[in-house]
Design a protein around this nucleic acid. Structure first.
Lengths: 222, 222
DNA sequence: TAATATTTTTAGACTCATCTAAATTTTTAA
DNA sequence: TTAAAAATTTAGATGAGTCTAAAAATATTA
């Protein structure tokens, strides 16, 4: 049995290890969980006891296979619920995070699988993040960012890195959503900002920061 | 802010007061919550502190208006989620209780209302229990039980009192579900068992205990 | 109404998850 | 390579929710 709090720690540790490297430090976890380092230490001892992480004091933690399974299950539930909230209940993609944070802890494998089926086995959530299947396998997603694209290319927005409402609202104002097609006109050397054109022939500039938060797929390239 | 545990106590107290009379005793609450009387006392003090119940020691508790609002909100969510699980996800009516017990604590008024809308504003859940609307008002339901019906009457099953999987499975074997129409042939004086006939002309006997767990509406009577 | 039974509450302890403040270990950099 | 800085852990406390065992209050019944 894993408690709600334990599940949240495991999710944090798992995503930290994914995004950075192979281990997560106490301080990193504390920052991500918005808690104190001493609380993290306490929890790491408990998770180690339960064989959900490999932990030795003063050394960064690794997640065990058992712990990884829990983390992936939470992520699966989170993303399926986000999909449900947006596609079935008509929430905006900027409104679903906090609700999904709660729903991800509902415990019932059958519920998760029936929800998955009801939704038509979606591969990506409303932010373009891959949804693991019931075996825990993630679908492959292109990991190229808009900031890495060459001038002249045509591309499609397939995901966002930053999930904050402020960023998502900003994209909304620019008429950018998943599936939006853009053509990259110019890359300014000076600040790495980009000039892009959309399907309605609207031209606008995106800062390096914005571009590095957008996952894209080059058009006609597979 | 009400915690998950506080919400469960309030729900228990509210339903006890509904079903019995005007007040709930410590022991009754303990039984319903499957916990010890001393734990109940502790919780009643806390709920009283928060003005969710009116409590004086050694006296049975009453729920306040504030507490009632919380309880009704939990019941609303529970029943809407049950409806969703059965109607959208194809769960059986005997499988949804435990999952709904978890989902009822998800905190988002907007979610509840959007779910309600998505489901088409259902008035009754899969067990025939009334679903309060977003103002907390319950739809009216006939409260007559099968055990109170006179011989010769035609009736429709509109609800069950006992929600246990064993009872619901038993009904399933008898081909009884919500909406099932029956005609009451005979009432045996000896043990108050009933002989009924369904639409397919199958005749069977129902014990007093079963009959007193079925809510019905007399056919052609409104 | 007094004795007994039942119900309810208190006292004290436990677990989970958290905190602050102080101590320890590791890392960095002079 | 040693001193300072940073990261991490320990010690001790707190709050929510629970428990057992004992005490107190209320209800029952002879």
């Amino acid at each position: 049995m894993t408690s709600l709090t334990e599940e949240n720690y495991l999710k944090a540790i798992y995503t930290l290890i994914q995004s950075t490297d192979k281990k997560a430090s106490t301080n990193e976890i504390a920052k991500k969980m918005d808690t104190k380092a001493s609380s993290v230490t306490d929890m790491l001892k408990r998770l180690n006891e339960k064989k959900l992480v490999d932990y030795e004091r003063y050394k960064a933690v690794k997640i065990t296979e058992k712990g990884e399974k829990v983390a992936i299950s939470i992520i699966r539930k989170h993303r399926l619920w986000e999909y449900f909230l947006v596609e079935s209940l008509n929430f905006g993609w900027d409104e679903v995070h906090d609700i999904a944070e709660q729903l991800e802890h509902i415990e019932s494998v059958e519920l998760t699988n029936k929800l998955d089926e009801f939704l038509g086995f979606p591969k990506f959530d409303p932010h373009g993040d891959p949804i693991p299947n019931n075996k825990g396998v993630f679908p492959r997603r292109e990991n190229q960012k808009l900031s890495e694209v060459q001038e002249g290319k045509e591309l499609i927005i397939i995901g966002v890195e930053d999930h904050s409402p402020s960023f998502l609202n900003f994209l909304g104002e620019m008429n950018i959503q998943l599936g939006t097609e853009l053509s990259l006109r110019t890359k300014h050397q000076f600040d790495n900002s980009l000039v892009v054109v959309n399907n309605e022939n609207q031209k606008f500039t995106l800062s390096q920061k914005v571009a590095s938060n957008l996952y894209i797929k080059i058009k006609n390239e597979d």
